[in-house]
Design a protein around this nucleic acid. Structure first.
Length: 577
RNA sequence: GGGAUCGUAGCUCAACUGGACAGAGCGACGGUUUCCUAAACCGUAGGUUCCGGGUUCGAUUCCCGGCGGUCCCA
C-alpha cells in the first residue's frame, strides 16, 4: 500500500461520501516539517464547511498510525507526516526487489510513435540537431521503460527541390573522383556550388535544376538511382552520429515515403468539405479556431508540410494504430502543429497527437545557419568533447601512479562515454522549452551539475561496493535486527537519501507525463548530491555492523537507480573513472 | 497589425503544475586529502521572481493590463 493510498483512505474515513478529487502526498518541502506532506485537506475544507485546520485534523485522526512516527497539522492546514523506520525499511526493500527500479508499467499494451531528429539529407548534422535527437531519444527511452511499445521514426528531409539542384551539381560540378567517392561533405559542397549558380541572372542553371527535379519526380530511373544513392550515403552518415549518441531508430520514413500519398490526402479533405480554393491554392480555413489558414496545395500544384504530415498520420494509423504520436521539433513550428492537429480532429482521427516544442539553439545570439557562418558540426562538437574529457582522464591516470596502466583504447572509450554524456546532459538538464545559446564551455561542462558529475558518483559507488567484497546485493549481507531486506535507515542524512530514492519511479512518470527528460535529470542530480554529501561525510566501509551493511545496501540501491536513470537519458555509466 | 513563447541571484537554470523561509550549478571569497576515487565535500556573500492590478487562507505558478526579448503568421 502506497503512502498516497493510506492517506486517501484516511480522507475517505474522515469525509465519507465526499468527492475527494485527487489526493496527493508529496515530499515535504523542508525536512523540519517531516518526510511527506499532504495539502488537500485545505481544498476540501471549504467544500465541507470546516475550518481548514479542523479538516486536516479530522484526516489526521482517521489516519492509520502504524506507518508513522509523527503526524501533525501545521500552518493553514497542512498535514505533515513523519514515517516510521520500519515503513521506510520495507519500502526500500520493496523498491530494491522490484524489477526496473520500480518503474510502473503504465504503458503495457499501448503503442506510440515518436518522431524525432529528422535531419535533412545531403547535409551534415550540426549542433542545432542535438536537441531534437537527444530530447526525443530520452523521451523514447522513458516511454519504453514504462512498458510502452515505441516506434521511433526518423522523418528525414529526403524530398524536395534541393534534389534537382544536387543532381545537376553532381553531373556538372563534381570531379570523377568525387563522384566515385561520394560523401556527405562532398554533397554539401555540391549543393552550395550548384545553388549559387542557380541564382545567376540568366536563369539557365536554375531551369536545368528544375528539369532534373521534374525527371526525378516523374520516376526517371537514372535520377531516382542518384537520389537513392544520396539518401543511402546520408543515412549512413547520420547513423555514424547516432551510434555515438546511442540513438536508434526503428524506421526512417522520410518525406519521400509520404509523397505518393499526398493527392489522396487532398481528396479526403475535399470530400470532407474541409478544403476550399483560395487564390489558386487549396486551403483549410481554421479561422474559427484562431489558427488562420493552412495551405494544403499551393497554386503551383506543390504540396507542403501540412499535407505531408496529414499523409504521415494516415500512414502511421494504418500501419501501427498507435494511441499516441509524439513530435519533437523546435518551437517555431507550433502554429503548424496546432493547425494540422486541428485538421486531424476534423478528419476524425482519435489518435492523441502531441507536439513537444523545444527552444531553438542559437550561437552567440544568432540563429545557426550556413548563411551566418556559425554552423558548428556535431562531429566537431563530439570530437572536442572527447578531447577535453580525455585530457582529464589522462591527467588523473598520471596522478594515480599505482595499478596497471589503462590501455589507450580503454582511455579513449572512457573519454567518449564521459564526453558524450556531458554533451547530452547539458541539453537534457534544461526544460526543453527554454532556448539555448550554444556555448562550448557549458555544452561540455565536466563539473557541477553535469553528466560527468553523475557518472563520477556512479563510479565511486561501484568502487565502494567492489571494495566491500560484493555488489551489495542482499545475498552477501547478514540479516539485521529491525532491518527489512537488509535495509536499516539510521541517521538523518541516510533518511533523506532513502526518501529521495523512493521518489525515482515517480520522477520517471512525471518526466513522461510532462514530456520533459529534464524532470528526470533534475531528480538524478538532486539524488546524486544527497549521495555525494552522505558519502563524503559518513564512513561506510569503516563503520561498525550493522550500520556498515545497512549503508552498503543503501549505496547499492542508489547505484542501481542512478544507472537506470542515466540509462533513460541515454547516458552511459562506466564502472570506473 | 494578429498570435505563440519566455522574463527568477553577476551568468546558466530549478522550483514535483496554487503551498510553508524561492533552490542548485558556474563565477567570487574562505575551508576540507597520512581517511571508502577532490570530476568531490563543507561554509560565506549574492533576490522587490520585469512592472502594475486582480482571484485566493496562500501566487514565481492562474486572470487582466503594460514593458522587454525571441519566434510564427499576415
Amino acid at each position: 500500500m502506497t503512502l498516497t493510498d493510506i492517506v486517501k483512505s484516511a480522507f475517505e474515513k474522515a469525509f465519507p461520501g465526499e468527492d475527494l478529487g485527487g489526493i496527493r502526498v508529496v515530499p515535504a518541502t523542508d525536512p523540519k516539517f517531516g518526510d511527506y506532506q499532504c495539502n488537500d485537506a485545505l481544498k476540501l475544507a471549504k467544500k465541507v464547511g470546516l475550518k481548514p485546520r479542523d479538516a486536516a485534523q479530522r484526516v489526521a485522526d482517521s489516519l492509520d498510525r502504524a506507518c508513522f512516527e509523527k503526524v501533525e497539522v501545521a500552518g493553514p492546514g497542512f498535514l505533515n507526516l513523519t514515517v516510521s523506520q520500519s515503513w521506510l525499511n520495507s519500502r526500500l526493500a520493496a523498491l530494491d526487489a522490484a524489477p526496473n527500479c520500480g518503474i510502473p508499467q503504465n504503458g503495457r499494451g499501448k503503442k506510440i510513435v515518436i518522431d524525432y531528429s529528422s535531419p535533412n539529407a545531403a547535409k551534415q548534422m550540426h549542433i542545432g540537431h542535438i536537441r531534437s535527437t537527444v530530447i526525443g531519444n530520452a523521451i523514447d527511452r522513458i516511454f519504453r521503460s514504462l512498458g510502452y511499445e515505441v516506434v521511433a521514426d526518423n522523418h528525414l528531409g529526403d524530398w524536395g527541390t534541393q534534389f534537382g539542384i544536387l543532381i545537376k551539381g553532381y553531373r556538372d560540378l563534381l570531379t570523377d573522383d568525387e563522384r566515385a567517392n561520394l560523401t556527405v561533405p562532398v554533397l554539401e559542397k555540391c549543393y552550395v556550388l550548384s545553388a549559387a549558380k542557380a541564382k545567376e541572372e540568366d536563369g539557365v542553371w536554375r531551369e536545368e535544376c528544375k528539369a532534373e527535379l521534374v525527371k526525378l519526380q516523374q520516376g526517371d530511373a537514372e535520377n531516382l538511382a542518384l537520389w537513392k544513392r544520396f539518401i543511402d550515403i546520408s543515412i549512413a552518415e547520420f547513423n555514424r552520429m547516432y551510434a555515438k549518441l546511442g540513438v536508434k531508430f526503428d524506421t526512417y520514413r522520410g518525406e519521400s515515403y509520404y509523397n505518393p500519398l499526398m493527392p489522396g490526402v487532398v481528396d479526403r479533405l475535399l470530400k470532407a468539405g474541409l478544403a476550399e480554393e483560395s487564390e489558386g491554392a487549396l486551403v483549410v480555413k481554421l479561422e474559427k479556431e484562431k489558427l488562420g489558414v493552412a495551405i494544403v496545395r499551393k497554386s503551383d500544384g506543390g504540396y507542403n508540410y501540412t499535407t505531408s504530415d496529414l499523409a504521415c498520420v494516415e500512414s502511421r494509423v494504418k500501419d501501427y494504430d498507435p494511441e499516441r504520436i509524439i513530435y519533437v521539433t523546435d518551437d517555431r513550428q507550433q502554429l503548424h502543429f496546432k493547425q494540422f492537429f486541428s485538421i486531424c480532429g476534423k478528419l476524425g482521427y482519435t489518435v492523441k497527437l502531441v507536439h513537444v516544442p523545444f527552444g531553438l539553439m542559437s550561437y552567440q545570439g544568432k540563429a545557426i545557419s550556413t548563411r551566418e557562418g556559425n554552423l558548428i558540426k556535431l562531429d566537431d562538437l563530439l570530437a572536442e568533447a572527447v578531447r577535453r574529457s580525455k585530457a582529464i582522464v589522462e591527467a588523473r591516470a598520471e596522478g594515480a601512479a599505482e595499478g596497471p596502466k589503462a590501455a589507450e583504447g580503454d582511455v579513449l572509450r572512457l573519454a567518449e562515454q564521459i564526453g558524450f554524456g556531458a554533451v547530452k546532459y547539458a541539453d537534457l538538464s534544461h526544460d526543453p522549452a527554454t532556448a539555448i545559446d550554444f556555448n562550448w564551455d557549458k555544452a561540455l561542462a565536466l563539473e557541477g551539475n553535469s553528466g560527468p558529475y553523475l557518472q563520477y558518483a556512479y563510479a565511486r559507488v561501484k568502487s565502494l561496493l567492489a571494495k566491500a567484497g560484493g555488489d551489495g546485493a542482499s545475498g552477501g549481507v547478514a540479516p539485521m535486527p529491525n532491518g527489512v531486506g537488509g535495509f536499516l535507515v539510521a541517521g538523518p542524512v541516510e533518511k533523506r537519501l532513502a526518501l529521495q530514492l523512493l521518489e525515482f519511479p515517480g520522477a520517471v512518470v512525471r518526466a513522461a507525463e510532462a514530456y520533459k527528460p529534464s524532470v528526470l535529470a533534475d531528480y538524478l542530480f538532486q539524488t546524486a548530491q544527497l549521495y555525494s554529501s552522505f558519502y563524503q561525510n559518513s564512513p561506510i566501509l569503516r563503520s561498525e555492523e550493522p550500520v556498515r551493511s545497512a549503508r552498503l545496501r543503501l549505496c547499492a540501491l542508489f547505484g542501481e537507480i542512478l544507472r537506470s536513470g542515466l540509462g533513460l537519458l541515454g547516458i552511459e555509466t562506466p564502472e570506473h573513472i
